[in-house]
Computed example of a mutant assay.
Amino acid sequence: MKKDLTGQVVVITGAARGVGAMLARKLARRGAKLALVGLEPVELKQVAESCGPDAGTWEANVTDRAAMAEAAGQILARYGRVDVVVANAGIATGGPFLDSDADAFDRVIEVNLLGSVATARAFLPALVASRGYYLQIASLAALTPAPMMAAYCASKSGVEAFAHSLRTEVAHKGVRVGVGYLSWTDTDMVRGADEDDVLRELRSRLPWPTNRTYPLEPAVDRIVAGIGRRSVHVYAQWWLRGMQSVRGYVPSIVATVGKKEMKRFEPRLRATVGTRGKLVGRGGQADAQAAARAGAQTGGDGGPA
């Protein structure tokens, strides 16, 4: 059933750019009030200004439980309720696991998985009170494994499982939980990954339709529609729905085909090993900079304060 979004208070994490920013603007056009959470105050303010006077911004790192709890309290104080939460914040890194930067690899899992857990922990009490909707943004990476993306696949498989578990726990409280799936979509994260020539070529050799980058706006339109229906599954590209029925067969196929591709690209990967391993895209850079600032303030190792 389609739900009217007029006056609904929607919280979006990772709202400074990409999917989060466009989703905020489109939901604002549907009459929603937006609470935008992210790491980049200037970009967040620009998005909020485009969403109208009811939009607000909160600078918080999703991996910082205390900061997320404080943001949730402030959002409740301002709006009086929370109807929808979209756990969208995410980062990525690419390349062979054996060559990966250990801190960057762990950070992907921390932000994507534990950041989503912290988001749910902060906002679920408000969603119980409003009998609201929690949408966890996952990925094609949750449906199929992919070489060179071990951290991202692990984190997105994790958030998918987390959301499925959460759905059953809170259903009797009137809260609906959905999972959103996106393939390669034209965002800063994907463009950042494509700056690596080897990774870009490897992706181009994937079978259709997984080998192309999809425009952002139609993908976000599908997410908006899913929020309006409070859907259990939201597919940003039409063909992702079909992946659900074959996902059990995909790992063995990927292993067979991927072995040949990895052998073929091994010399180039070895020759360019020093060019990859860090977080990709402007969102990844923002997270790294925030971690560095937190480390400088605490004298620690760069982790969240």
Rank of each mutant, 00 (worst) to 15 (best):
83 D>F: 01
299 G>L: 03
59 E>H: 08
148 M>S: 12
93 T>I: 09
159 V>Y: 00
137 I>M: 09
42 V>S: 15
212 R>L: 14
187 T>N: 03
204 S>F: 01
273 V>M: 10
223 I>V: 15
11 V>N: 02
260 K>M: 07
146 A>S: 15
95 G>I: 07
138 A>D: 06
286 A>K: 04
2 K>W: 03
196 D>G: 06
270 R>S: 15
216 L>Y: 05
47 V>H: 02
180 G>I: 01
121 R>D: 15
231 S>F: 05
68 M>F: 05
206 L>D: 11
226 G>P: 00
203 R>N: 11
101 D>M: 02
232 V>Y: 02
89 A>C: 08
140 L>Q: 10
6 T>P: 01
105 F>N: 08
55 A>P: 04
71 A>P: 03
225 A>Y: 01
251 P>I: 11
27 L>M: 12
205 R>C: 13
73 G>K: 13
137 I>Y: 03
226 G>V: 09
110 E>T: 13
5 L>F: 00
194 D>P: 04
77 A>D: 12
300 G>L: 02
76 L>V: 15
57 T>D: 00
270 R>A: 15
289 Q>L: 13
161 A>S: 14
148 M>H: 12
225 A>F: 01
224 V>C: 08
245 S>D: 12
125 P>F: 06
148 M>C: 13
159 V>N: 08
142 A>H: 03
45 K>T: 14
214 Y>K: 06
200 R>E: 12
193 A>V: 05
164 H>W: 10
172 H>L: 14
213 T>R: 05
49 E>P: 00
249 Y>A: 14
152 Y>Q: 10
162 F>M: 11
102 A>Q: 11
65 R>Y: 02
71 A>S: 14
143 L>Y: 01
124 L>P: 04
111 V>M: 05
55 A>E: 00
267 P>F: 10
144 T>L: 12
166 L>T: 01
136 Q>S: 07
255 A>S: 13
123 F>Y: 06
138 A>C: 04
72 A>D: 03
95 G>S: 08
219 A>Q: 10
237 Q>K: 05
229 R>D: 13
29 R>N: 13
281 G>Q: 03
47 V>F: 00
235 Y>P: 05
63 T>Q: 09
58 W>G: 05
154 A>Q: 06
181 Y>P: 10
238 W>L: 14
267 P>R: 09
128 V>I: 12
73 G>V: 04
200 R>I: 13
138 A>E: 07
209 P>I: 12
81 R>L: 10
108 V>S: 02
99 D>N: 11
39 L>C: 10
76 L>K: 11
238 W>H: 15
33 K>H: 11
139 S>I: 03
205 R>K: 15
50 S>D: 10
210 T>D: 14
22 M>D: 15
222 R>C: 00
261 E>P: 04
167 R>V: 07
59 E>P: 07
233 H>L: 10
15 A>E: 01
